[in-house]
Amino acid sequence: MREINVDKITEIVKEMCINVNHFLSEDMREAYKNAYDSETSEIGKKILGQLQENLEIAGEEMIPICQDTGMAVFFVNVGQEVHITGGNLTDAINEGVRQGYVEGYLRKSVVSDPIIRKNTNDNTPAIIHYDIVEGDKIEITLAPKGFGSENMSKIYMLKPADGIEGVKEAILSAVKDAGPNACPPMVLGVGIGGTFEKCALLAKKALTRKAGEHSQTEYVKELEIEMLEKINRLNIGPAGLGGKNTAFAVNIETYATHIAGLPVAINICCHVNRHITKEI
């Protein structure tokens, strides 16, 4: 058994919260650059230029890339040979979020109850998804999620007879409905299969994949490429003002499902697709 103290986890989570809200990952920066180079709409190019300028200012002056610093969503892979000491893992992660959002001048966007709506003032609780894996390490992925795009996300319980064409239609329909509201160019996380909640989780997790990386499954990879092309022909464009860059990437994850079902979840993320991973 390898021992990991909760204080170490809190410290790392705190740093991750601050880092991820000021610096986009290399793959996302590359996606911005490619979009700028390929954009043919004059207004679209102008907006992509300003979005790149925004990233520079954010990093240089430590101003969050977007004021919506999101709800802190975690995927945590806990090695089964790890022994957590000094407290409770969930509390340690939430303490890291609390410290990161308060000390890092990040916006507190969480209310404690969906109806009563009182702000918790420290951006907790986080949303944490755990997996137990082999090994003696903990791998933490943080993807703060803004709600402009989260609100435009969709879940469909399709019928098996709808098949892959039904899936394509669902994805296009979600993007058309989202339009300018989701701050395009977007990244799409798509989950196909599983159950109602599993496909939503797959979609969320798909957003943490590197932009430009494809599924290992051949038909899924082809679907990702085809859908990205189709979406980018919708002429929604940067900020929804027209252009060929409506999405940076379409990331699709699949899972086994029931003989009666074909669940599809489309989790939309704005161009500020933040994710960071650390291994302890």
Partner: peptide, 8 residues
């Protein structure tokens, strides 16, 4: 105004 350009 441009969404996601809060620093700028």
């Amino acid at each position: 105004s441009i969404g996601g350009a809060g620093a700028l």
